[in-house]
Simulated assay, not measured.
Amino acid sequence: MLTRRAVAVGLALAAARPQLAAAQAYPTRPVRLIIPFAPGAATDILSRLMAQQLGDALGQPFVAENRTGANGAIAAELVAKAPNDGYMMLTGTFSTHATNPHIYPRFPYDAVADFAPVTLIATVPQLLVVHPALGVSTVAELRAAASARPGAITAATGGLGSSQHLSAVLFEQAAGVRFDTIHYARGFAQLLPDLLENRVNLTFGDPLALLPMVRDGKLRPIATTGETRSELLPDVPTLAELGLPGATALTWYGLFVAAGTDPSIVARLGAAAGAAIRKPEVAARIRELGGVPSGLSPEEFAIFQRREFARWGEVIRAAGIRVE
Rank of each mutant, 00 (worst) to 15 (best):
I316W: 07
N71E: 14
L289D: 02
E308A: 15
A145K: 15
A22V: 00
R322N: 09
G226F: 05
L11W: 12
E172K: 08
F204E: 02
V323L: 15
V118Y: 10
G254L: 07
L219S: 03
T91L: 15
V7N: 04
P117W: 10
I303P: 00
V124C: 05
N71Y: 13
A152Q: 15
L255D: 00
I45V: 15
P36G: 12
I45D: 05
T238N: 03
G246L: 07
M50H: 10
A276R: 02
A140Q: 15
Y109I: 01
L134R: 09
G72D: 01
G243I: 10
E324T: 11
F204V: 09
G320T: 13
L232E: 00
L196K: 07
D114N: 13
A284H: 13
G291V: 00
E314Q: 15
E300Q: 15
E227F: 14
E197Y: 11
G159M: 09
T238S: 09
G254M: 07
A146Q: 08
E299S: 14
V315A: 07
G161S: 06
R4L: 15
P27I: 01
A51S: 12
L128H: 08
G226K: 05
A249S: 14
R149P: 00
L242P: 02
Q190G: 05
G274T: 01
F309L: 12
G158K: 01
G254R: 00
A38D: 14
F62Q: 03
Y104F: 15
E65A: 11
